[in-house]
C-alpha cells in the first residue's frame, strides 16, 4: 500500500499525495498523526464522534470483513451493566452517558466475548450469521430460561 512521508510541520503528507511513499521508504522517526489538526484540547475530553481523525487513524478503517458471525443487540432486555463495553477487545461497544447504544460494525470482529459476558436472561446480545437481518434476528430471540435445579 502506498502512503506518506515525514516532512512538514505535522510530520506527514496526506494519503494519496502526489509523491506516494511505500512503507519501506519511510524515513526514521516518521510520525503518523492520528488527527487532522494539532489537538489543543485533551483528547480524553472529546467524544470519538467529535474528533477530527486523520486518514492514518485506524478508526477510519474497517475490519468488518473478518466476521462470519456477528453480535445482535436487543435493547428491550439490556440493563446497561456495561460488561460488554469493558471486555470488548475491539472498542466496538458504543456506550455514551452510561447507556449501551449498540455495536460498531466497522470495528467488531465477531469474537463473541460480549455475548459470553452479558448477564441478562435471556441475553441481550446473541451471535447470528453475518447475513441475518437484525429484525429477523430479534424475531427469533429466545424466551427467558428457567434456572435448572441442582
Amino acid at each position: 500500500m502506498k502512503g506518506v512521508l515525514a516532512t512538514d510541520r505535522r510530520g506527514i503528507r496526506e494519503l494519496g499525495a502526489e509523491e506516494l511513499v511505500g512503507w519501506d521508504e519511510v524515513t526514521q522517526g516518521v510520525i503518523l498523526e492520528s488527527f487532522e489538526v494539532p489537538m489543543e484540547e485533551n483528547v480524553a475530553h472529546i467524544r470519538p464522534e467529535e474528533r477530527p481523525y486523520s486518514d492514518f487513524s485506524s478508526y477510519t478503517a474497517t475490519v468488518a470483513s473478518w466476521r462470519v458471525i456477528k453480535p445482535v443487540y436487543n435493547r428491550d432486555i439490556c440493563i446497561d451493566c456495561q460488561n460488554c463495553w469493558v471486555w470488548c477487545p475491539d472498542t466496538s461497544i458504543i456506550s455514551r452517558d452510561k447507556q449501551m447504544l449498540g455495536i460498531d460494525y466497522d470495528h467488531c470482529k465477531g469474537c463473541g466475548v460480549c455475548v459470553e459476558v452479558c448477564p441478562t436472561n435471556p441475553k441481550s446480545l446473541l451471535m447470528f450469521s453475518e447475513a441475518e437481518e437484525p429484525e429477523a434476528a430479534l424475531a427469533k430471540w429466545p424466551e427467558k430460561k428457567k434456572k435448572e435445579k441442582k
Binding site: 492520528s34 483528547v43 480524553a44 475530553h45 472529546i46 467524544r47 470519538p48 487513524s57 485506524s58 478508526y59 478503517a61 474497517t62 475490519v63 473478518w66 446497561d80 451493566c81 456495561q82 460488561n83 463495553w85 469493558v86 477487545p89 475491539d90 472498542t91 466496538s92 456506550s95 455514551r96 452517558d97 452510561k98 460498531d104 466497522d106 470495528h107 467488531c108 470482529k109 465477531g110 469474537c111 463473541g112 466475548v113
Partner: peptide
Amino acid sequence: LKEFSTANERFEGAHLLCPGCAHS
C-alpha cells in the same frame, strides 16, 4: 462499570489483533 464506561476511548478499533485477544 457504568461510571467507568463514560471514559472517552483513546485506543481505536480496526487494529489487527486476533478476535478475542486479551491484549487490547
